[in-house]
């Protein structure tokens, strides 16, 4: 870990300014991903702006009937919130399916959105990685890719976005609220927040330098039944091979996004229209143009089967699902 200086910011714009004005400066919230990466010198900030005193740690009702989740609300608090559990179950379930109790106690809402990929080649600094070091190549291509992306990837990078929370936010059409060093506010639909890698896998999101997340806004509740089906090799404390976030309405319509398959939560709205035809129809459309490797081709049938599991459960009481 390289040396850095450390400060605690007391207001959001000042924090954004501190980062914008200083090359190499970074914001520090929970730190559960940033410190991990700093120890390996994958991240090498020279200055950390700790935002824990900024507030942003409450969940408020919005005038539109939705919820405004402060950027620093911990994963645990968000998942445990009674309104989230009642009206946005998919979000609660997605968060609880991720990481561990200890990590969820520390990780923040904003930090969870910003977590970086878990591609093993990104994590080994001796390996070529365009995301870690632009232009160095991608050692994952042709390598061990069982966990990696099957769609939306590029010849530069086949990593996935590893999170669960954002996949649920994607079906909920959440909006990421930001402020920049000039005090300018911006609302970024979650669909536009994470990027496809293209030629610039080093850029995970559409955030601009110095832009600070203040909140995530959930629109009015969708009703329906909420599911988060996460498939992994071990039963807990593991990243998804494939996950499915879904909100299914009584009439069989609904929304579906997939995790563990792409650089971002993968939702194809056109595919959702096919829900009444069953899981295979939905995934055939959602994964059109997929480019899996030999190692991870199983993710395509797995996505279908995981969605089928969700659809089979829709309409049965939660207690019976186990």
């Amino acid at each position: 870990m390289r040396s850095f200086t450390y400060e605690r910011a007391t207001d959001a714009v000042a924090a954004a300014r501190a980062v914008a004005q200083r090359p190499g400066a970074k914001l520090l919230a929970g730190g559960t991903n940033l410190l991990d990466l700093m120890k390996l010198e994958i991240e090498t900030p020279t200055h950390l702006v700790d935002v824990q005193d900024l507030g942003f740690d409450t969940i408020e009702k919005t005038s539109e009937g939705g919820l405004c989740i402060g950027a620093l609300v911990t994963n645990t608090d968000l998942a445990a919130d009674a309104r989230v559990r009642r009206d946005y179950g998919v979000l609660s379930r997605a968060i609880l399916a991720g990481a561990s109790g200890q990590l969820r106690n520390k990780a923040s809402t904003a930090g969870n959105l910003l977590q970086r990929t878990r591609c093993p080649y990104f994590y080994d600094t001796n390996m070529a990685c365009n995301k870690r070091k632009p232009g160095s190549g991608c050692a994952a291509i042709g390598g061990y890719s069982r966990q990696l992306g099957v769609i939306g990837v590029s010849p530069s990078c086949i990593a996935t976005f590893p999170g669960d929370m954002a996949v649920a936010m994607r079906v909920l059409d959440a909006v990421v609220e930001t402020v920049d060093a000039g005090g300018q506010r911006r609302s970024i639909p979650i669909a536009d927040f994470h990027r496809l890698w293209g030629d610039h896998p080093e850029q995970d999101t559409t955030l601009r330098p110095g832009e600070l997340i203040t909140a995530v806004v959930l629109p009015r509740p969708l009703g329906g039944e909420h599911f988060y089906e996460k498939v992994r090799d071990r039963a807990s404390y593991a990243y998804a091979l494939v996950s499915v976030a879904a909100v299914i309405q009584r009439d069989g319509s609904g929304r579906v996004a997939f995790g563990g398959v792409a650089p971002k939560p993968w939702r194809v709205e056109a595919a959702e229209a096919l829900l009444p035809q069953g899981a295979a129809a939905v995934t055939a459309r959602a994964f059109q143009g997929a480019t899996p490797t030999k190692d991870n081709a199983f993710k395509l049938p797995l996505a279908t089967r995981a969605l089928a599991a969700v659809l089979a459960q829709a309409g049965t009481p939660a207690q019976k699902r186990g």
Binding site: M127, Y144, Q147, D233, R234, Y237, A238
Partner: peptide, 21 residues
């Protein structure tokens, strides 16, 4: 990784061992 000659999943997040669950 038979190209570079290493065990690429060299941590406890990627070399999975059983957990309580």
């Amino acid at each position: 990784d038979t190209r570079f000659g290493l065990f690429i999943n060299h941590d406890l997040a990627t070399y999975e061992v059983p957990v309580h669950a």
